[in-house]
Amino acid sequence: MVIPVHDVNPARRTPYVTYALVAAGVLVFLGTPGVASWVTGEHGLAQTCRLQAFLDHWAAVPRELIHGRLPAGVPTGDVGVGPRGPGCVVGAPGYDKSPPLSVLTAMFLHGGWLHLLGNMLFLLIFGNNIEDRLGHIRYLLFYVACGYAATYGFALVNADSADPLIGASGAIAGVLGAYLVLYPRARVWVLVPFLVFLPLRLPAWIVLGFWFALQAVYSSGSGLPEAGTVAYAAHVAGFLAGMVLAWPLRRGTVQPPEPRGLLWGRRARRDR
């Protein structure tokens, strides 16, 4: 897996929407119940119950999206004692939740620091150029549309899942798909783990194509002993949606200058 750190593709305008999305993601994460436990590593039952109740309220749940109805019982955020000992209390929902609107709110929720920082890194590197190409308003609409495509794409193949789906990964995958279509030859600085982290400057089509291939493999259930809690199918759906929406804009997109005679960012010596 390569880690992108910077792209060589200057933008003409300040990416205010990208910055606002990053700020919103960080602020919502800091306001999420139990965030302190992700920093200290200490997880208590009360924190777990509050977090479960928070996610059931604000996260997107595939079963709710496809069937359009809320479950009869959800975590209330309280701790109780049952036949099997202490646990989270389950009761009737004390809120009126709109499943379609939960797709939007779920885009600003994250399951931990690594989840948040990884998403924000990709958004900062690749989002500014897509915002520059689309303009602020169209970029925001594009971002939300890709997030919805990713979430509903995942829900369609996991229609009976009751697990909360959170994160901006699907929307950001759409940004990556658009970048691949619009700036395939732009150079991207990446760190490649090979004994140490080796810095390389690679074309975007290699970096993003490799990323998408990994998501496609993992979404099929191959390559990982367990998929864990990562919604790889949402990444695939969001990426494809971004490619489709950006395709009509290929013509007229100004390409960044392509460096020649460069090896890992330095001029290669010519043999005489």
Rank of each mutant, 00 (worst) to 15 (best):
V188E: 01
F194N: 15
A213L: 15
H235Q: 08
G170H: 04
P203W: 12
V188K: 01
G223E: 00
V188S: 01
V244L: 15
W247E: 14
L191V: 01
V236L: 07
L182W: 05
G238F: 09
L245C: 05
V181R: 07
A168W: 02
R185Y: 07
L191R: 07
G252A: 06
V192L: 15
S219M: 12
A227I: 08
P184T: 04
P184H: 10
V236E: 03
Q215G: 01
L240C: 07
A204F: 07
F212R: 15
R251T: 14
G221L: 10
A186M: 03
A171E: 04
L208E: 01
S220K: 06
G174D: 02
V188F: 00
A171V: 09
W205A: 10
L195P: 04
A233M: 12
Y179M: 14
A216S: 08
Y232F: 15
F239S: 03
L180E: 02
P248A: 12
A173I: 00
A171L: 08
P164C: 07
G252L: 04
N158H: 15
W247N: 08
A186C: 08
T253Q: 04
E226D: 14
V217C: 05
G174R: 05
A237V: 01
G167I: 00
L208W: 03
H235G: 13
L245V: 01
G167L: 04
L249Y: 11
I206E: 08
A233R: 13
L245R: 12
M243Y: 00
Y218P: 00
G221H: 05
L165W: 06
A168Y: 05
G238L: 07
L191K: 11
R251K: 13
V192D: 13
G228A: 03
L198W: 14
Q215E: 10
A178N: 02
A213V: 01
P193I: 14
Y179Q: 14
R201A: 13
P225T: 09
A216I: 08
T229F: 14
A186W: 00
M243R: 02
A204I: 06
E226C: 02
L245T: 04
S219P: 07
A204Q: 02
V157H: 08
